[in-house]
């Protein structure tokens, strides 16, 4: 059997996929609070922007984050159209690393102008030892590796996604 072809999520996904975030009267299945800081004082905040090939911030992308480690399977979803600067923001945990593997979050990215979604990963700046010996990171040309590494900030981590250009984010064929 042949796969059903992908089609773009389009510009109007908000009331179907992220309704509460965009204040539509329909219950959301998932949001950007993958954990709460109240229950998990060790939780982290990750924020960033998605840039197109002209350097403009994309205001109608949707990100999904999947965290899988030995303890948790956590899912989050957020559109870039409601925060200041059209940022995305997630509250999540830093995954527990498996042996010799640097911790990472899986990202699935959708937007108008993408006929098929993109996969990337978020690694962490403050995991230098594990990052240095990680098989996946080492399979990526050195000059592009940093596009996958979230930078530590006062508030948590910053992770920008560039669809094109010198800093084009690494996307994976999974």
């Amino acid at each position: 059997m042949k796969q059903t072809p992908s089609q773009t999520v389009g510009p109007y996904f908000a009331y179907g996929l992220t309704p509460e975030q965009y204040l539509y009267d329909f219950r959301s299945l998932a949001d950007n609070k993958m954990v709460s800081f109240t229950d998990h004082p060790e939780a982290i905040q990750i924020e960033g922007q998605v840039f197109d090939g002209q350097g403009n911030v994309i205001p109608d992308a949707m990100l999904e984050i999947w965290l899988k480690d030995s303890e948790n399977g956590l899912f989050g979803r957020f559109g870039t159209g409601t925060e200041t600067g059209n940022k995305f923001v997630f509250h999540t945990l830093k995954p527990k690393p498996f042996a010799n593997e640097a911790p990472f979050l899986s990202v699935i990215l959708f937007m108008r102008g993408q006929l098929i979604h993109s996969y990337t990963r978020i690694y962490f700046e403050d995991e230098q030892a594990l990052n240095a010996k990680d098989e996946v990171l080492n399979s990526i040309p050195a000059e592009r590796r940093n596009t996958l590494i979230a930078q530590k900030t006062k508030y948590g981590y910053r992770f920008d996604i560039h669809m094109q250009g010198d800093q084009e984010t690494v996307f994976f064929d999974i």
């Binding site: 002209q54 403009n56 994309i58 993109s118 399979s139 669809m163 084009e168 996307f171 994976f172 064929d173």
Partner: peptide
């Protein structure tokens, strides 16, 4: 301006 231009990494 939204399609990745570099090959996907396996």
């Amino acid at each position: 301006f939204r399609a990745p231009t570099k090959p996907l990494i396996a």
